[in-house]
Design a protein around this nucleic acid. Structure first.
Length: 276
DNA sequence: TTCCAGGGATATA
DNA sequence: TATATCCATGGA
């Protein structure tokens, strides 16, 4: 288990074997962060934190430390997860390469909107579009703009989403914002995975891949394996090739079980970083 | 210039 | 159920 010290405006992490901000933030699960000369800054919802490298490990500066304990999943035992995945030969190098990965506990509404925008898009552009969404509709805070509420987004139209670069996804965003609210998404936490899957797939702009990302990065479900273009390449070079991404996901979940989501993140990070 | 990015919706067979 | 095509945008 990760050992950390929490104060009124900080978290200190001395054990960095399963905590590395670069691994956590750049493994593709989140778009609301930035890197600067000091380290990383995170701005989920209306919160804010700096993550700074120190000689003892990492210092997280924030006025809401309890929020970020949950956000960074600090109370979960990643050594256990890595031991479970270490049994698979294909995971050995990715586990070493992304040893500091943790799956964040992200806001459901923000995750849903973010991954609808992610469809057939690239990460720098996704970040840019989401930042524009914050800065035009989000409430101004001490450190920047919060992620906008559903009520605020209800006021804008398709042309607005096009103006911030969402392209053809604009119509999905206009529709989905009218299909669900934050409370409904929260109420789905109690559903089993098949029911949750069915509800998510009924939303505009949500297909199999976006569903899996929302289930993993929002609902923290381990029994999904999002298959994107990077995972598809990995799959077809490691296993007998398939064209069907849905079938790939099924096979990968059959292999990794409840650790599928975690396995996916180590593999995605490894594949994408080594392509750069 | 063409290809590609954390794909989804729709039409067609 | 399975495959083909269209869809905005910008960087490589």
């Amino acid at each position: 288990m990760l050992d950390y010290e929490i104060g009124s405006d900080y978290i200190k992490i001395r054990d960095t074997s399963s905590f590395n901000p670069q691994h956590i933030l750049e493994c593709g699960q989140v778009f609301s962060y930035a890197k600067n000369e000091e380290g990383y800054i995170c701005f989920p919802e209306d919160k804010f934190a700096r993550i700074l490298k120190r000689d003892y490990g990492y210092l997280i500066q924030t006025s809401t430390p309890q929020y970020f304990v949950k956000y960074f999943d600090l109370d979960k035992d990643y050594d256990l997860i890595k031991r479970g995945l270490g049994r698979f030969e294909i995971m050995k190098k990715p586990l070493e390469f992304g040893s500091g990965i943790r799956i964040l506990n992200q806001n459901l509404f923000e995750t849903l909107i973010s991954f609808i925008i992610s469809a057939n898009n690239n990460i720098p552009r996704i970040k840019k579009i989401l930042l524009a969404l914050r800065e035009t509709l989000g409430e101004k805070t001490q450190y920047g703009h919060a992620f906008p509420s559903r009520e605020r987004i209800l006021e804008v139209d398709e042309e607005f989403f096009k103006s911030i670069g969402a392209g053809y996804r604009a119509k999905y965003l206009v529709k989905v914002i009218r299909q669900v609210d934050e409370q409904t998404l929260e109420s789905w936490r109690e559903l089993d995975s098949p029911s949750l899957s069915k509800n998510l797939l009924a939303l505009a702009g949500v297909g199999e891949k976006v569903r899996d990302c929302v289930m993993l990065f929002g609902y923290h479900r381990g029994d999904v394996f999002p298959v994107d273009t990077w995972i598809e390449k990995m799959y077809n070079s490691s296993f007998s090739p398939l064209q069907n991404r849905i079938k790939m996901g099924e096979n990968l979940v059959a292999m990794f079980g409840d650790l599928s989501g975690y396995a996916q993140q180590y593999l995605f990070f490894y594949e994408r970083e080594n392509e750069k």
